[in-house]
Design a protein around this nucleic acid. Structure first.
Lengths: 215, 215
DNA sequence: GTGCCATGCGAATATATGTTCGGTAGAACT
DNA sequence: AGTTCTACCGAACATATATTCGCATGGCAC
């Protein structure tokens, strides 16, 4: 009914104060504290604005409870800090793996990704796979490495991608070259030969955006 | 004086309750809530145990403040989640870098390391460097990679290590082979030749334990 | 102007919450 | 047995905190 998410200055001020306070103390401020530290003349003003903020969904309050204010800030901070992506399993030449879309299962594992490898703001649609086999050694990816892929169904020439070959129902990590109506899947390993498949028979499952290795 | 970090059942119970409560409400419980929900007969019992828990460092309290309990849990969770190691700079063939011991400077940067790359319990003495140059490509380390090293002054044959050549005051990433009273430093790149230096002229600065790459 | 409404003020009120204190029961030690 | 200590109980107490209510102000539409 009130589609404007507009907050008055005072409301913004109060919200900011609460966030900062929780950050610093690990528990919410009392209404009187808000009042005094913000130089507001009466607690009722704080209550008034708090109610508005609650209606706007900016925070939740537990009636009659001291310091019963809670911003989702804590959870937000956790999420912000936890740069995680779903770990979908192992990629081998041969075995299929679940669609990245099938994340609904709930039992998915997650692994951390440092922002130095993939910036937090580009983590959307990124997932992780563990590499089995040496088909990518010349691209500096070895057996046991964890590769990070961003889901996308198209690729540029030479991109390193995870591709599913529909006819075998298998997924592998290869460099991608479109050649006419065929696709050349080039292992980054001089001892291995490329594979040629009809363009209609491949489906790209994502592009490699990072690698992590434990030794 | 009391070296035993042992907690009584009740103390564990209270601590657990607080954790759960904070998790659920985003603000700490009142003493009376603890008392009632745990079926304790008096608030003073709770206070009594709370004081012990505070002495033990399990939580902090703000005197006279309603719900002024804060568990280090949040920070603990953060720390547990934030597996970080100091980032000491760039390693090139040529330029020296600060001693890993000189962490006291305070202005050190830190980067996250997922437990999949280096387990949290083995993070001691680990630091990170950014690689400049291609001297290690055959070891699957490329320009721009972040390598994780555990500080150690000795190495096994063939270990990949960061070594300082004292006479030039330079540090590089190489495979290490001791040959008599000399040391062979072997780039993992067939196009580059090994370096031989007297054993007394090298100082090992750490062994590579992980690699992270952004693409 | 008149009325309406968002916003703010101040004080009174109710109660939620932390603190303190005197006392008890049992375990451990002398 | 006497002493001491830990852990607990119950109740009184002090105050920190939220709530409510009547009233003031200023903008704005009519």
């Amino acid at each position: 009914m009130q589609p404007q998410p507009s907050l008055s200055n005072r409301q913004r001020e109060i919200l900011g104060y609460i966030e900062q306070f929780v950050d610093q103390h690990n528990y919410p401020p009392a209404i009187r504290q808000i009042q005094e530290d913000l130089g507001i003349s009466s607690t009722s003003v704080v209550v008034y604005n708090l109610n508005i903020l609650e209606q706007r969904g900016m925070l939740r309050r537990e009636g009659k409870v001291s310091r019963g204010i809670s911003i989702s800030k804590v959870e937000a901070a956790f999420e912000a800090n936890a740069n995680q992506v779903p770990f979908l399993g192992t990629i081998t030449a041969g075995s299929p793996l679940p669609d990245p879309e099938d994340l609904s299962s709930g039992t998915t594992e997650y692994i951390d990704v440092p922002p130095e490898v993939v910036p937090s703001n580009k983590l959307a649609n990124v997932y992780a796979l563990k590499v089995r086999g040496y088909s990518m050694v010349d691209a500096l990816i070895a057996d046991g490495d964890i590769v990070l892929l961003r889901y996308q169904e198209t690729a540029q020439q030479g991109d390193m991608v995870a591709v599913r070959i529909i006819s075998d129902n298998s997924v592998t990590l290869k460099r991608f070259y479109k050649e006419g109506d065929k696709v050349r899947l080039q292992p980054a390993n001089v001892t291995m030969d490329p594979i040629y498949v009809p363009a209609t028979n491949v489906r790209i499952q994502g592009r490699v955006v990072g690698v992590m290795r434990s030794m």
